[in-house]
Amino acid sequence: MSKKRSDWESRPQARIKKWFFDGYSAFDDEIINQISVKTPDPVNHAVYDAYIDEISANKHERKLMIEKFEDQNVRSWINARGRKVFTRFYVILSFLLACLMIFFLLRTVAEMPRFGSETSPGINEVTARYIEKGLDETGAMNIVAGMILDYRAFDTLGESTVLFIAASAVLILLRIDRNKDGSPVMELIAEESDDRHYEPRNDRILQGAAKVLVPIIFLFGIYIILNGHLSPGGGFSGGAIISAGLILYLDSFGFEKAGRFFTYSTFSWVSFISLSFYALAKTYSFYMGANGMESGIPLGTPGAILSSGLILPLNIAVGMVVACTMYIFYALFRKGGL
C-alpha cells in the first residue's frame, strides 16, 4: 500500500498537483535536500565569508542542476519554467487583485456623501456633544485635545503604552551589550563597528548651527506641549519636536556628550514616571466619576494656561514619553545603544 502510494506521489500528475496546490515553494525542499546549506555563526568573520562563497557556489550549482534536467520530462519543466510561470502568474494575480480592490473601493467612494457636505452620516450626535459641551466639561479650548485627553483618555494611555512597548522591543532587538571597557560583548559586523559611522567629526558649521537651533527647538516643543489645550498641538507633536532637537544635538556633538544627560536610566525613569502618573491620574478621575463624586480638580478659566484640569499635566506626560521614545529609536537604529 505504502509503495503504491509513493509510486503515485512520484508520478508527474501528482507532482503537478502538488506544485499547483502548494505553490512554487513545494520544490524548495528537494533543492535544499540536494544542496545542504549550513549557516555558520554570522559573527565569526572568516567562517562567514566562506559561507557566503558557498552560497554563491550553490546558486551556480542549482542553476546547473536545473539546466541538467531541462530535457523532456515534467519535472524539469516544473523546476525551470514552472517557477517562472508561477511567478508571472503571481504577479498578474496580485496586480488584478489590487485593481479589483481599487475598483470596488472607488465604486464605494462614488456612492459616499459629497466631500465637505454637512449631512454626511459621520456628523452625528457624538460630534454635536463634543463641540457643544466640550468646553464646559473639559475646559479645553482645543476640542480635539479635550476629546483625546478627557473623554477618550484611556485610548491615549494605550497609545503611550504602545510607544513605550515599541521602544522596549527595539531596545531588545538592537541593543549591543558592552563590557566595562566599552568593547561590545557580541563582535560587531565589520562595517557596523566602524566608528566613523556614528562618532562626531567636530563639524564646526553643524555644531554652531546646533548651538543656536537646539534651544529654540526645545522652546518651541515646550510651547506646543504647554499650549496643547489652547491651540493646535499637544503632547504627541510637542514631544516629536523636542526629540528632533535631541537628535540634532546628538548628531552634532556625538554620543559621549549626549550621554551626559540622556542614558538608559533616564529613558526608563522618565517613561515610568510619566506613564504611571497618567494611569494614576485617570484612575482617580474615573473612580470619582463612576461613583458620582466631585473630582475636586478645578477647570479654571478657559483660555488660561493653567486651566482645563488634568489635560495640561497629561499632555506633559505624553510629551515626555514621545520625546524619549523617538530619541531612543534614533540612537538604537544608528549605533545600537546610547
Partner: peptide, 14 residues
C-alpha cells in the same frame, strides 16, 4: 462660539 454649525468634525482627527 460653541455651535455645531461653526466647526468641523473633531472625531476623525483623534
Amino acid at each position: 462660539i460653541q455651535d455645531v454649525e461653526a466647526y468641523i468634525n473633531p472625531i476623525p482627527t483623534g
